[in-house]
């Protein structure tokens, strides 16, 4: 493990690849790795790319990475695809669209299976980001599972979130729904060469209150509205809506410019620190949740848990009562002391 960590800090591809596998497969390996690497992280600009399946996320990642490489930045890519809920297997196909990046030692691409996580990322994605960060990749592109409306974890993991839409996926009411569109720092309408793309751009702009008059027009009156940024702070960042045709590389130069501008905005407005704070808070709570559940599993046998599930299913007890019974296995925190332990 120490050898691998030294290799990662040196930026050696084999060591990075091996450590990513360990971090993915074992929580205790992730703990050891992150503990050792953490002082070397915090340098990378983490960019999330999300959107529905088939909207062109992988192709866009390929183009963004090419442009960033022209600027001389080392690029790490984590591409997440879904695991089968039935067999646990996965077909990870994002590399198919990233063949332009082959042979460039300044790019490292890793495919990840979601392994049962539902938020668009894999559980190990957070640790994997740290491995790439410590390995010295200035930009880390995280491509989520094809996301519908509510897979918003990426906004918590990334500094800059791109939401990719494409024409032909619903009317403009979709643009007003809560969820994934709200997490965008940059909205991309990909496949802009297809019919209907201007309408998607317009609906999104309307949704953002970025109409040509700077507000929403209704019966001839301009209604201005202030919209809170995705994380609840009013940041002053104007979310751009960018048409692009990633398969031909069109619109991607402007996209990369906007990504860099968003980074500059984060740094100058002080929002970088706020987002880091939110990132860390979310990660801590996730880890805590995981560990507390693990602790429950050691305190209460599987049989006992199964018996409760059966009782709930048979309508003998309700789910709230069942949870209360499970929580009884944990002493309330102020009672945790040597005394209570000695009575058992």
């Amino acid at each position: 493990m120490n050898e691998l960590i030294a290799g990662v800090l040196d930026g050696r591809a084999r060591a990075i690849a091996r450590l990513l596998t360990l971090v993915e497969n074992s929580e205790s390996a992730a703990e050891t790795a992150v503990t050792a690497l953490y002082p070397h992280t915090g340098q990378a600009h983490i960019i999330g790319i999300t959107g529905p399946p088939g909207s062109g996320k992988s192709t866009l990642v390929n183009e963004i990475a090419k442009r960033l490489r022209q600027q001389g930045q080392r690029v790490g890519i984590l591409a997440i695809d879904p695991s089968s809920p039935f067999t646990g297997g996965a077909l990870l196909g994002d590399r198919v669209r990233m063949r332009d990046l082959a042979g460039d030692s300044g790019v490292f691409i890793r495919s990840m299976a979601s392994r049962g996580s539902l938020g668009g990322l894999a559980q190990a994605t957070w640790a994997a980001i740290k491995v790439l960060d410590a390995a010295g990749f200035a930009k880390i592109l995280v491509e989520t599972v094809g996301a519908g409306q509510a897979e918003v974890d990426i906004a918590r993991a990334a500094h800059t979130t791109l939401v990719v839409e494409a024409p032909g996926m619903g009317d403009d009411v979709q643009a007003f729904k809560a969820g994934i569109l709200e997490i965008a720092d940059i909205l991309v309408v990909n496949k802009a060469d297809r019919p209907g793309s201007e309408r998607v751009v317009r609906s999104l702009e309307l949704m953002l209150h970025l109409g040509p008059m700077g507000g929403t027009r209704h019966h001839g009156r301009i209604l201005t509205a202030t919209i809170p940024a995705a994380n609840g702070t009013s940041s002053g960042w104007q979310i751009p809506v960018l048409p692009a045709t990633a398969s031909e590389g069109r619109g991607t130069a402007e996209l990369v410019t906007q990504i860099q501008q968003h980074l500059a905005h984060l740094q100058m407005s002080g929002e970088w620190q706020e987002r880091e704070q939110e990132r860390c808070r979310h990660e801590l709570r996730q880890l805590l949740q995981m560990r507390l559940l693990a602790r429950l599993d050691t305190a209460v046998s599987q049989n006992e848990q199964d018996a409760l599930v059966t009782a709930v299913a048979a309508r003998e007890i309700d789910p709230y009562t069942a949870v209360r019974q499970l929580l009884n296995h944990f002493p309330a925190n102020h009672e945790v002391s040597g005394k209570s332990a000695s009575t058992t």
């Binding site: 695991s83 297997g89 490292f108």
Partner: peptide
């Protein structure tokens, strides 16, 4: 995939260099 494995599919027209690089990065 159906046998529960994680399959990294890289597509057509790969050079030997691309294949070995992919295998290395994907471990």
């Amino acid at each position: 995939r159906d046998a529960g494995m994680e399959v990294i599919y890289t597509g057509l027209r790969q050079t030997p260099e691309m294949i070995v690089e992919s295998a290395l990065q994907e471990d």
